[in-house]
Computed example of a mutant assay.
Amino acid sequence: MSLSDTLRVFHLPFSFMLPQRVAARRGYFADQGLDVELIERDRRRVDWKYVPGDETLTGDADVDLYPVCKWESLKRTWSLDDGRIVAHGAFADLPYALYVRPETSIEEPSDLANVPVAVNRRTGQEYTAIRALEEHLDPGEIELVHQGMPTDRLRALRGGTVDAATLLDPHSALADHLGFRRILEFENHVGVVGTEDLDDDALAAFMRAYGRAVEEINENPSAFRAQYLEMLEADLEVAPDLFDDVDLAAIRESVTVPRYEVPELADPDDLAAHLEWMKDRDLIDERAEIGAIVAPH
């Protein structure tokens, strides 16, 4: 595809993707000569995970570009042949947090041996959780269970279905106000995947527009608080019960807009190390090759 074509971009309604929303709303993509269409799903209809695990985005959904966890980008591109990784990065100074209920005897990550930890499987967050927990537990002691979207994980934690759950801001802010305790924080890394025929000029234009949004947010984060809080407001419709016993105004006040980063073009050498880590833990086909996963530049 070229600059003259419509670029269909999958949008994740999560905190680390705010620059993409800003670039679309403020016309930064259009200023770069791009006609960008953000593809979104109705969260009220998502009962498993926002990124479909058994369907391709570049094929079944006709998407040209999509963000997903760095390790899941390795998995999807190889296992589903769902595009090639074109960029990756931390995206934001925004860690995942692992929470437990206040009455539990769990005080630190080493207490999580053989304790089910709620994650959203096949979104990539399970891999980041494994990497973080490996610093405190033997691999055989790590137990992850699928509990779905952030609001579902909060409900599972509140209801006692699980004793621990991973969350990302602004859901972590809600967890704080619900009285849960955070005992571990770890980085969130994202990969950007494009179709086989994604034009280098189109990708460069997309990154320039994205970078412009990052620069503006970082220069004046308070100007973007309302947009950032939209993710929290959306959960009032999805899971109103989670807000029954909290001061919503206090939650809004406690949330701060993080500092964002621009994704870097995919580095095969860097991603090869992550691929080997996945192979060592039987998280991906041992035949997976980085050359078939990362797009050439």
Rank of each mutant, 00 (worst) to 15 (best):
E286M: 10
V294N: 02
R121P: 01
M149G: 06
M1F: 10
L137S: 12
P52D: 04
L203V: 12
R43K: 14
A132R: 02
A205K: 05
A249Y: 03
L74E: 03
D93R: 15
R287M: 13
D267P: 06
V86N: 06
M278D: 08
F186N: 05
S15R: 03
N120V: 03
D280N: 13
H177T: 07
D62E: 15
L38H: 02
E40I: 08
G191F: 04
A30C: 11
V162P: 00
V117M: 00
E233P: 04
D199E: 08
L57T: 02
V46K: 08
E108T: 14
G179P: 00
R225A: 03
E216V: 05
V294D: 02
T195M: 00
Y66A: 01
R26A: 12
I217N: 05
D247E: 06
L3F: 10
V115I: 10
P109V: 03
R252E: 06
G59E: 12
A24W: 09
A92W: 01
H297E: 14
L12R: 06
E196D: 15
G160E: 01
S172H: 00
H297I: 10
G124M: 01
A204M: 04
D138R: 06
E37V: 11
E141Y: 08
Y50M: 05
V117R: 00
L112M: 03
L94G: 03
D81T: 13
L12E: 12
R212V: 09
L98V: 03
P258M: 02
P240M: 05
K279T: 10
E219D: 14
L203T: 09
R43Q: 14
L7V: 10
D176S: 07
S4R: 14
I290T: 07
Q227S: 09
V36D: 00
A250W: 08
R121E: 11
S110M: 13
R84Q: 13
G33A: 10
A156T: 01
K279Q: 11
Q125S: 11
L137V: 09
D82I: 03
G160V: 08
T128C: 11
E289K: 09
S222R: 13
F224W: 09
R121C: 09
E108R: 14
L94Q: 04
R84E: 10
L242H: 02
V63C: 07
F224E: 04
S105A: 15
R101Q: 14
A165D: 01
D269H: 13
G33P: 11
G211N: 10
P258L: 02
A226G: 11
R131L: 12
Y228H: 11
I142Y: 00
K75V: 07
P102K: 03
R25M: 14
Q227G: 09
Q125T: 14
P170E: 02
H297V: 12
R155D: 09
R43P: 09
R287P: 05
V9Q: 01
L242G: 03
T123F: 05
L236F: 13
V255D: 04
S79F: 12
V115Y: 02
A266D: 02
E55I: 03
R26S: 11
E237D: 15
S79K: 14
A249P: 06
I293W: 05
P240E: 06
N218C: 07
D199T: 05
N188F: 07
M207A: 07
A90M: 15
S105P: 13
E185H: 14
E261F: 14
F243G: 03
